[in-house]
Each structure stands twice: as structure tokens, then as C-alpha cells.
Amino acid sequence: MQENRVSRWYFGGVSSSAAACVTHPLDLIKVHLQTQQEVRMRMIGMTLNVVRREGFLALYSGLTASLCRQMTYSLSRFAIYETVRDKMKRKNKGPMPFHQKVLLGAFGGFTGGFIGTPTDLVNVRMQNDVKMAAEFRRNYAHVFDGLLRVCKEEGLRKLFSGASMASSRGALVSVGQLACYDQSKELVLATGYLTDNIFTHFLASVFAGGSATILCQPLDVVKTRLMNSEVQYGSVSHCLTETAKLGPNAFYKGLVPAAIRLIPHTVLTFIFLEQLKQHFGTLSLVETDRCARRHPPGMQLMMAMMMHTHTRTETHIAFSSFSVYLCFWMRTRKRCQSLV
């Protein structure tokens, strides 16, 4: 029987960081496309232009900021969503309804988006530096240098420029990714044709990535413009107005690279997350109780140890180990029985 394992609170941040290492060049090209005032280049042309001007490694500009962002933004939203979801699942003895997943995902994403705003701002600026003239580049050495310089040169408030957009986008992305992934995975497993394996995770995450891309693209464009500007936009409404003057399509600038970046990122994130959960996750309390029932508390092993001791000290050590093990087993059984 397959063990029911629960994700640890930091697995979401780790898996998102691993996925970001693969998809970072796509994220950089997406930022370049979104910050164009007029559509001059498409995705392939922009990629070739960056490589021709700065070299291949320029596609990884701002990687440190991207990883730091995943370990703040993604770690927070995954930790909130999965912790509450697992507790509700144990309490209700079944999966949460979809509307509750949507609300929980939105709350986790909104919170994570606000926490990750400073690193997101530095990430956008480091990525956009590549296409700027040398005299206008900010040249942040790394994410922490960027954070310190923004504080000194522009003030602490500037670190949270675009926080409302980042939080709103985080809420929509989390609804598309977390809630839709869980729901689509449950629906796929309910058909009975597939089991809980990598192919199921792939199908569910592709749907989740597509949903997240469509939901968040307009806010993503506004957020990127706000974070990349120093004095160009006075407020969110000003940025919305100026972007709208470019036409409705301006809110979906970079949709294709955003989808090409976000869908693979979502797929890799959830595949990494499921693998981490499977190999390093903790057993759920119900599963721990089942294991305890199948495997008695090592009484035969402990008695054998006591029988083969030859000195009083060895006997005391064996008896103490047996007592600690027995107390732990009884506490686990009692805790599980109170929940089941």
C-alpha cells in the first residue's frame, strides 16, 4: 500500500527555486517584452538580441534575485496553503471543496506576494539592466546589493513599489496554480484510469500553469512596469491609464513567453514538490497510526537486547531505550485516535 506522506512547510520554496533555475531565461525575456513602450521585437528576436549584445550568460542576469524571491514569495504561499489544506483535510476526513481551495490559495498568494515584493523589484531591475545603455544601468552586484542600494538611494518605501499589484498577482497565480492543481489532480485520480504518479502530476500541473497564466497576465504587465520605473508612474492607477493608452493588447504583452515560462515552471515546481514529498515528506498522522498497528512497538527487539546484555550498565541502557520507545509509540497512538 502506498504511504500517505505530507509535504514539509519549506518544500514549496525549494521546488520553486529548482524550477526557477531552469526557466529563468524565459522570465528574463518576458520582462524585456513587457517593458517595451512599443512592440519592436518578438520573443525570438529579443532572445537573439540579448545573446548577441551581452552573451549567453546574460540570460541568467538576476538569478540570485529570482532565487531569493522564490524563497520568500513561493515559500510563504506554499507553506500557508499546504499547512492549512492538510489540517482541514484531516479535520474533514476528506479533500476541501474547490471554493475553499480558491479562497485559501488567494490568501496565501496575496500574503506571499507582499512578502516577496522587495526581492521581486530587484529581480525585475536586474533582468532589465541587460537591454539598457551602459550609462543608465543600475549594475546591482547581487540581490542584497540591490536591496541595500534601493533603500539608500530611493528610500525604504520604494522596496514595496508595486506591492498591491504583486500581492494581487500572487493571489491570482496561487489560485491558478495551487487550487487548480489540487482540483485537477483529484479529478484525474477520480477517473480511475491513472494513479498518483509523475504523469498525473504532469497533466494536472499543465492545466494549473495555463490557468495561472491567463488569470495573472494583465496584472503581471502592470506590476513589471511599476517596478521597473523610478519616477515614470505616480501610482497604480496612473500606470493602468498609461498602459491602457497603448491599447487592450498592451495588457497581454509577452503572453506567449509568459505561458512558455510559467507553464514549464509550474510543471517542474509540482513535479519536484511531489518527489520531495514522496521521498522526504513526513508520514501523515493517520498513516503513522496504521504503521504503528502493523508494526508493534519493537517489543521483541527490545527484549532480545535485554536478554543479551551482560552488565548492569548495558541492561539499564536497553531498558531506558525500550521505555522511551514505548512512550513515544503510546503518545502517537493516542494522538492519532483523537483525530481519526
Rank of each mutant, 00 (worst) to 15 (best):
H316Q: 03
R312N: 06
F322W: 06
R294I: 10
P296W: 01
R312W: 09
M302D: 03
H295R: 14
C327N: 11
A318Q: 02
M307D: 07
H308T: 09
M305E: 11
M307N: 08
F322K: 00
L326E: 14
T315F: 13
V324F: 12
A318M: 07
R293W: 00
L326V: 15
H316Y: 09
S321W: 12
M306R: 04
R293K: 14
F328Q: 15
A304W: 09
T309L: 03
H310F: 14
S323W: 05
M302G: 00
S321C: 10
L301Y: 10
A318K: 01
F328I: 13
S321D: 01
Y325V: 13
Y325C: 13
Y325N: 10
E314G: 03
S323L: 15
H295A: 14
A304L: 05
M305R: 07
Y325R: 06
M305P: 00
W329H: 13
T311P: 15
H316A: 09
M307K: 06
R294M: 07
R293N: 12
A318D: 03
P296H: 06
P296S: 13
M330P: 05
S321Q: 02
H310T: 15
M303V: 14
M307G: 03
H308R: 02
V324Y: 06
M307H: 06
H295V: 13
T311K: 04
V324P: 02
T313G: 02
R293V: 08
L301F: 12
A304M: 03
W329K: 07
M303W: 06
F319V: 11
M305A: 09
M307V: 15
T313E: 14
T309D: 03
M330G: 01
V324D: 09
P297H: 02
P296M: 08
F322M: 12
F319I: 09
T313R: 05
M307E: 11
S320P: 00
T313I: 13
S320W: 09
L301S: 02
I317W: 13
T315P: 00
G298F: 14
R294N: 06
A318S: 04
M303G: 00
H310W: 13
F322R: 01
M299E: 13
M299Y: 04
L301N: 01
R312V: 12
L301R: 01
H308A: 02
A318T: 09
R293M: 11
M330D: 10
M307P: 01
F328V: 12
F328G: 15
S320V: 14
I317P: 00
R294Q: 08
M306E: 09
T309N: 02
L326F: 11
R293L: 10
T313P: 01
I317S: 01
M307A: 12
T315E: 11
T309F: 06
E314Y: 07
